[in-house]
Nucleic acid binder design. Structure first.
Length: 605
DNA sequence: GCCGTTTTCGGCCCGACTGTTTTCAGTCG
């Protein structure tokens, strides 16, 4: 939780550490009552750095401060601080700020219902500088002595502290999707409701979901709100109005909903498009849309697109020019429709203006799956069952890629068993051919990349395979340079087709290992090796930011499920949407290729 | 602190809900 020093991230000053530092600077300046636009600048800078594929250190070494200033959201002031951080590992400005601010104040700032004004006045007036001190003061009624703090505020603060203490991090996307699906079915039954759907980060398919945003279209908003706040799994009603309500769900069995916050907005059918744009976000995307609208003498809100007078008033009755559909909203701003996954203010509006938006990959573009496991290693189903499930999905091919011998916990195959499996798959394919089916099982392996960068099967055996998927499964703590060299050695071996889950992360459980992804991607490009998007909701690896970089560098991608059972092929949608967030098009994806062309890519054609 | 198909200075999105207020500030998304 404490991100007050860069040194803990090691000598390498990486983007993530710099972004966190600037976000903290924004928080501190805000509590200090600094100009809110200056605060915004640091916050925007932090977000821009976080969504950057290339490391700032590299950009700085290649082009110095001028190259930094070229980056969106980075100006003279922030660039100078980045330079100082890169060259000296520290920033005097940041250190002075940190020293002047007790860390507990930032915890208070992040409590629900607390903002910079209240946090600042608590500190200045009562000297409250930690959650513990705040709790003690609230419990004894001390807070009510402050102007603007009443009894209800005190109770809300105590409640916020309670949920702060039990908070277990953001909910994984798969959990949030399941919760949202249940609520959507429930709300659809309410009288007057014509549609309910998930908006917010869920619709944008972010890998972590802070809260669930639902949008209902209804002519009877009050009935919807009654039903929503009365749902049996609601633990707390945070707020309830005629168009907007917020609840917190109970931590259900097995932590399924784990105190998830859900926002519901209800609007009328005429507002459907503008409401969906508004509630899908992201916030940064909406701000960019509204700035553009303003420059054109227009105003965008959840209620539509309006003409405004010079004084900023809505021009006149009937001056609403769009709002019924999302397309109409974008069109009124002179833009084509922008897919939800792209709406992060990462250049999508500029691309839309230039007509260079990508034609994003869709699940129906996929011809097969290139990573799965069977009972031969740690899978739950026999080869035949996995093959039949893949055929039922309409795939043309499926690669069987069981683990190699070093991964003993997964019953990895030794050379003899892999050879046996190869023969078995040959027989199976022959049977398919005889029965006139065009489906093909590809003989493969998910071979371990050992600590020294060598592969866990002998070359002669790997040469017999159609496809080799290589992955790191051990030694995650290896230092950055070594790990980079290890993976690049595998790429340069000439035996590998795909690098699987390239950072090894497990969302919310295990950090990605240290690796120079840009160097890995450049090597992959040079040696015609594809990078995997692993579709496990816990992995989503590569992530959106790395995929965008891969696309820019011209690296091919494989979207795979890594299924360990036939019912896990459905996870493919997570991989597809993550790829879409990385601006990936069908032509970038090797499993969008027909079998013959895929085999040529694999060097087997 | 950032930024520029009105600007290198003067702007910097829009609206709902709550609580403590006699008309609005603070917070949130």
């Amino acid at each position: 939780m404490d991100n007050r020093t860069l040194t803990e991230s090691g000598p390498q000053v990486n983007n993530r550490a710099i972004a966190r530092l600037f976000a903290t600077v924004a928080d501190i300046l805000e509590v200090k009552g600094e100009n809110r636009f200056r605060v915004l600048s640091y916050r925007n800078g932090a977000e821009a750095i976080d969504s950057m594929g290339s490391e700032l250190t590299g950009i700085y070494h290649d082009g110095g401060v001028p190259a930094l200033i070229e980056l969106p959201g980075i100006g003279k002031g922030i660039a100078a601080k980045i330079e100082e951080l890169i060259t000296t590992g520290r920033s005097l400005f940041v250190e002075e700020l940190l020293e002047s601010t007790p860390p507990g104040i930032l915890d208070i700032l992040h409590l629900a219902g607390m903002g910079p004004k209240k946090t600042g006045s608590l500190y200045r007036e009562l000297g409250i500088d930690s959650i513990e001190a705040l709790e003690a003061a609230a419990a004894t009624g001390k807070l009510q002595t402050l102007p603007g703090f009443g009894e209800k505020t005190e109770q809300k603060i105590l409640k916020a502290i309670e949920s702060f203490k039990s908070f277990s991090g953001r909910n994984r996307i798969s959990i949030a999707r399941a919760v949202a699906a249940g609520l959507i079915e429930y709300l659809k039954e309410v009288s007057g409701v014509t549609s309910v759907e998930a908006a917010g980060s869920l619709r944008r398919w972010r890998e972590n979901i802070g809260d669930v945003d639902l949008l209902a279209i209804s002519t009877e908003p009050l009935a919807v709100m009654e039903a929503f706040t009365g749902h049996p799994s609601v633990a707390t009603v945070v707020m309830k109005g005629s168009t907007r309500s917020t609840v917190v769900l109970e931590s259900g069995g097995g932590g399924r909903s784990s105190g998830l916050q859900v926002d519901l907005r209800v609007l009328s059918p005429d507002d459907y498009g503008s409401a969906l744009v508004h509630f899908t976000g992201s916030k940064a995307h909406n701000v960019a849309l509204r700035e553009r609208a303003k420059a054109k003498g227009l105003k965008v809100s959840e209620y539509g697109v309006f003409r405004v007078t010079a004084a900023g008033e809505v021009a006149a009755e009937g001056e609403r020019i769009a709002g019924a559909t999302e397309e109409s909203v974008y069109s009124a701003l002179g833009l084509p429709f922008i897919a939800p996954e792209l709406r992060e203010d990462r250049g999508e509006i500029e691309a839309a203006l230039e007509g260079t938006l990508p034609t994003l990959v869709e699940q129906s573009d996929l011809r097969g799956d290139l990573h799965c496991h069977t009972v031969w290693s740690d899978g739950a189903c026999p080869i035949e069952e996995m093959a039949e499930a893949a055929m039922a999905l309409g795939y043309d091919y499926l690669a069987v890629t069981d683990h190699s011998r070093s991964l003993t916990v997964a019953h990895g195959l030794d050379s003899a068993r892999l050879a046996e499996q190869i023969d078995k798959i040959d027989v199976y394919n022959e049977k398919l051919r005889e029965s006139g089916k065009s489906f093909r099982l590809l003989k493969g392996s998910e071979v371990d990349i050992l600590s020294d960068g060598t592969l866990d099967h002998p070359d002669v055996l790997l040469a017999r395979l159609d496809i080799v998927v290589a992955a790191v499964h051990s030694g995650f703590g290896m230092e950055r340079a070594k790990m980079t060299a290890r993976v690049i050695a595998a790429i340069e071996s000439g035996r590998v087709n795909i690098i699987a889950h390239p950072t090894g992360r497990l969302i919310g459980m295990r950090e990605p290992f240290e690796i120079d992804m840009e160097a890995v991607l450049r090597a992959a490009k040079e040696h015609h090796v594809a990078m995997e998007v692993n579709s496990y909701p816990e992995r989503l690896d590569l992530n959106d930011v790395h995929l965008r970089l891969a696309k820019e560098l011209g690296v091919k991608v494989a979207i795979s499920t890594d299924a360990h059972a036939a019912d896990q092929f459905v996870n493919m949608e997570y991989g597809v949407h993550t790829a879409r967030r990385g601006w990936i098009e069908p032509e970038d994806v090797i499993n969008c290729l027909p079998l013959e062309e895929l085999l040529r890519f694999l060097g087997k054609g």
